[in-house]
Amino acid sequence: MTAHIVVLGAGYSGLVAAKLVARRTGARVTLVNAGDRFVERVRMHQLASGQRLRDLPLTGLLDGTGIEFVVDTVIGIDPAARTVRLAGTSAPLGYDVLIHALGSGADVHSVPGVAEHAYPVADAAQAARLRDRLPLARSVAVVGGGLTGIEAATELAESRPGLAVTLVTGGLLGEALSVRARRHLQRVFRRLGITVRENAPVGEVRPDGVLLPGGEHLPADTVVWTTGFTVPPLAGEAGLAVDTHGRLIVDETLRSVSHPEVYGVGDGTAARMRSGQELRMACATGLPSAAHVARSVADHLAGRPAGPLRFRYLNQCISLGRRDGLVQFVRADDSPVEAVLTGRIAALYKESIVRGTVAVQRRPGLAALSAPR
């Protein structure tokens, strides 16, 4: 009997995994996603600033693959029965192998007031909501000093020169980057007129700004929330082994440590390499991991032992508006070296990488090339 493989989530990792596993196994593959469009999540700061993004229907990206595509929301997993429950139908969806690729979203509940008053940019609906708000805004506080916060602050400041933009971070601006990289960030922020508040963890979001340590009120009529993440609770609710963040725990082949018929990939998976290094949330991780999970599933179905994921980081690419950028080169363990690219050439480099992530969705074999065996 032909195996039935169900893939949950059609983001950067899930779509590639579904297409590659269909190609390599000849199994029946069903892909389930809550929406009918592929979302370029790494461009959400551009969407929020008012830029138009490409329309990418998932049906077009799946043409010719033989994959059954279901637009629905997953509301439950039953590992004992090997079924998935969907919001739009009472009939459970059965599987022989399940690939969990549901990804992550903004954490809007760990700090008071975020859910009620802040504007996250983790998905297209959230970014569009911020875009619609900005024409009324005069001052914006971007909370979060990570790459998403840096990209959001610079994109907003460049696209709306009259907008007062402040970046608020609990640590230092670009603290995970090299000295040269941080210096470039500081120059760009000064050029764009962005105010930076460092070592200022936000304790509460209010309609008129945020509260900082000691009760200081930082006024802003719009608060953009870019810090923290959350994953769907489905894996933990189903009894699958998860970490303290609710991410599926997998072995070095990306197979669940508690349920061997389940595999995980993407932001909702706590993946480690044989060295013990945990992989960060990024396309740079998700695409080669998707290629590897497809190999692992194919090996499992063929009765072959699956090999461990082997992977190394090369760089971190940061857009600083449309005309500037920063490429931070890193060691294999993702720690920064002093080598960087900056300015227009870095912006073009970042744009080519982002375009490449969509090219991989069309030709997933490109992801397989970046995941050595």
Rank of each mutant, 00 (worst) to 15 (best):
L102K: 10
V340M: 08
L61D: 02
A302G: 10
L15Q: 12
A22G: 06
D72M: 06
Y349L: 12
F38S: 11
D107R: 07
G215I: 11
G9M: 05
L156P: 12
R180S: 15
R255Q: 15
A290P: 13
R344H: 14
P135C: 01
D78F: 07
E68M: 05
V196G: 00
N33G: 07
R344W: 13
I345P: 06
L172D: 13
R331P: 08
F329I: 02
T230P: 06
R247P: 01
D221V: 04
D334A: 14
G170V: 02
L15W: 11
V202R: 00
G321D: 09
A106W: 01
L56I: 14
G170S: 05
Q277F: 14
S256W: 09
A87P: 05
T230Y: 06
V242C: 06
R183W: 04
V330W: 09
R160V: 09
D96H: 04
G236N: 05
D36C: 07
A270V: 01
L93S: 02
S258M: 03
A18M: 00
P135Y: 01
Y313M: 08
R131M: 04
L211S: 03
H292G: 11
A27V: 08
Y119N: 07
G236I: 02
R331Y: 09
A106H: 06
E278C: 09
S352K: 14
V250W: 03
A270S: 14
P201Q: 04
T25C: 01
I99E: 06
V257N: 02
D267A: 10
V71S: 08
